[in-house]
């Protein structure tokens, strides 16, 4: 089943700057795909099209067969869960409970069912005991996890994460990886953390200068030195993707 279908997507910002020039991308149900690319490539711009925050100048975005257009926005936003890079942008309610409940409540969920969803989502990220704390009293890594829970509570068909491992300490980074692996949901993950992409996503795509320049198995892309150099992608010092055992199929 095709969850995400982006075809010929172009976007021009109101100031006239064109960020995307005809992008094609498709993601099937159950896949975990990494979206790689240098700063300014247009990754965030692409992500903001997936749930209709930005609307295309040309081309189309389709989520499980439903075109992302104004009349479909509410349903599209239920299907596509976006975790933003900065958890402070994402968490805006006075308590963790209220924040996680915000999305499902907008979908009309109420009462006991709402409580259940909140606790279930927090349980998935291991944050149940923080349910009555204010989000701004949590550590950065805890806030990132709650941010993931706010989106999981909406039971999305595809989870889109914008640089989920940034600013996390190594242990939190690994714990988030465990969480993402344990979820039974399609994932599209924007990241500059290439080892993380290799660890989590069997498939990667590379966006550069507003066009898709590569799509293939993550290990193959990361070992293609010409491709890497041409698009300012660099592996961390001493990291060799050839020497890393990758759990197949995930």
């Amino acid at each position: 089943m095709r969850v995400l279908d982006v075809a010929g997507l172009a976007h021009v910002y109101p100031d006239g700057h064109q960020a995307l020039y005809g992008v094609d991308l498709h993601v099937d149900s159950g896949e975990r795909v990494a979206l790689l690319g240098p700063n300014g490539a247009g990754k965030t711009t692409l992500v903001l099209h997936l749930n209709g925050i930005l609307l295309p100048a040309a081309g189309s975005v389709t989520v499980s067969g439903m075109p992302v257009t104004k009349p479909n926005l509410q349903e599209v936003r239920r299907r596509v869960g976006i975790v933003f890079q900065d958890p402070d942008d994402q968490l805006f309610m006075p308590t963790v409970r209220d924040d996680v409940a915000f999305g499902p409540r907008n979908l009309g969920v109420r009462g006991a069912e709402l409580d259940r969803r909140v606790l279930e989502a927090l349980d998935q990220v291991g944050m149940v005991e923080y349910v009555d704390r204010p989000p701004h009293h949590l550590s950065f890594g805890q806030r990132r996890r709650v941010a993931v829970a706010t989106v999981l509570a909406m039971r999305p068909e595809i989870l889109v994460l914008d640089e989920p491992s940034s600013n996390l300490d190594p242990a939190s980074r690994r714990e988030l990886a465990d969480i993402l692996r344990s979820l039974d949901v399609t994932v599209l993950m924007v990241t500059h953390d290439l080892p993380y992409a290799l660890e989590l996503c069997p498939r990667s795509v590379v966006l550069s200068g507003g066009v898709m320049v590569a799509d293939g198995p993550t290990r193959a892309l990361l070992t293609d030195e010409e491709l890497m150099r041409a698009h300012r992608l660099e592996l961390p010092f001493g990291f060799d993707p050839r020497n890393v055992p990758v759990p197949e199929g995930g």
Binding site: L48, N51, I53, L73, Q74, R77, R78, G81, I82, F84, D86, D88, D89, Q90, F92, F102, G103, N106, L107, T150, V151, M154
Partner: peptide, 16 residues
Amino acid sequence: ERGERVHLAMLSRGHA
């Protein structure tokens, strides 16, 4: 600007 980004996050979670 933070307010603007929060607004986007709210819209993304179905706030209409």
